[in-house]
């Protein structure tokens, strides 16, 4: 078989998801944001929800998410995505409504909105990109920054007496009565990517079935902000971030998992 014969549309077994637009995504090379966008586009298409999904963009690197995935979007003010999502889902309860937020957006300026939307049991999915810093604005310390981790605003490393401790917001979410599914995943290997895809599908199904709020945290790399190559960033994430943010389900009412 020649290469020309092989490279023919009927032989395609993997390609860019249909709902991921042809425009270039502005994310840095190797950024987890791009990877998660790709998965969200795949899952929405596989679930046939293209015409029935509303995403809420955050402020942060993902501020332009509406350009990249071909569904309906609303841009929220910094941290307010869960409040906007709550309102939209109450108006359109038959729609899948999800927010897409970084750790600065979700766990700092938007902590109140996040906790209360989860606690009210809004039938929404929150996708939480935890890269342990503020990526967009130059790698400042975030609530999720690890102890001892150096960032542009804690150049000597995060210290408890000066900066306080990392905020375990996902663990907190699992304790709230309004949440039905709380999980922590990553997208650095084929296996991890497949698990994240399943988690997103489960969260979206919960939202459509009005089971309460679902939170999918994705422990992510920001290789530019961490000043590492994409491959090194994945290694560092496995060695350091996973210690503080271990992967797995924290709560799944369906499976009876409550950690």
């Amino acid at each position: 078989m020649t290469k020309e014969e092989l490279i023919s549309p009927e032989n395609i077994v993997y390609e860019k998801p249909r709902l991921l637009n042809d425009v270039d995504m502005h994310y840095c090379p190797g950024c987890s944001h791009s990877m998660v966008h790709k998965l969200v586009a795949e899952v929405i298409d596989e679930m046939n929800l293209e015409e029935r999904t509303i995403g809420i963009c955050p402020v942060g690197c993902a501020v332009f998410a509406y350009r990249y995935i071909d569904i309906d979007w609303v841009e929220a003010a910094h941290g307010r995505a869960p409040a906007v999502a709550s309102a939209l889902n109450r108006m359109w309860p038959d729609h899948l409504v999800f927010t897409y937020q970084g750790d600065g957006d979700l766990a700092c300026i938007g902590t109140g909105e996040t906790i209360h939307a989860l606690n009210r049991g809004e039938n929404i999915t929150i996708i939480f990109i935890n890269n342990a810093i503020y990526g967009m604005t130059g790698g400042q310390m975030a609530p999720t920054t690890l102890m001892g981790m150096k960032t542009s605003t804690c150049p000597y490393g995060r210290q408890a007496d000066l900066h306080g401790f990392p905020l375990p917001i996902t663990d907190m979410a699992a304790t709230l009565n309004g949440t039905c599914y709380v999980t922590r995943q990553a997208v650095h290997t084929v296996a991890a990517i497949n698990r994240t895809k399943k988690a997103l599908r489960k969260a979206f199904e919960n939202s459509l079935q009005h089971k309460g709020a679902s939170l999918v945290e994705i422990v992510s790399t920001c290789n530019s902000g961490w000043k590492m190559s994409p491959i090194k960033a994945n290694e560092w994430m496995e060695q350091e971030l996973f210690k503080a943010y271990p992967l797995g389900d924290l709560k799944d009412l369906e499976e009876g998992v409550i950690k």
Partner: peptide
């Protein structure tokens, strides 16, 4: 055609063909 490269490509740049 195992697809590993295409699955990990964050930007969806790789098309995989198999026959």
């Amino acid at each position: 055609a195992c697809r590993a490269c295409a699955i990990v490509c964050p930007d969806g740049c790789i098309t995989v063909y198999k026959s």
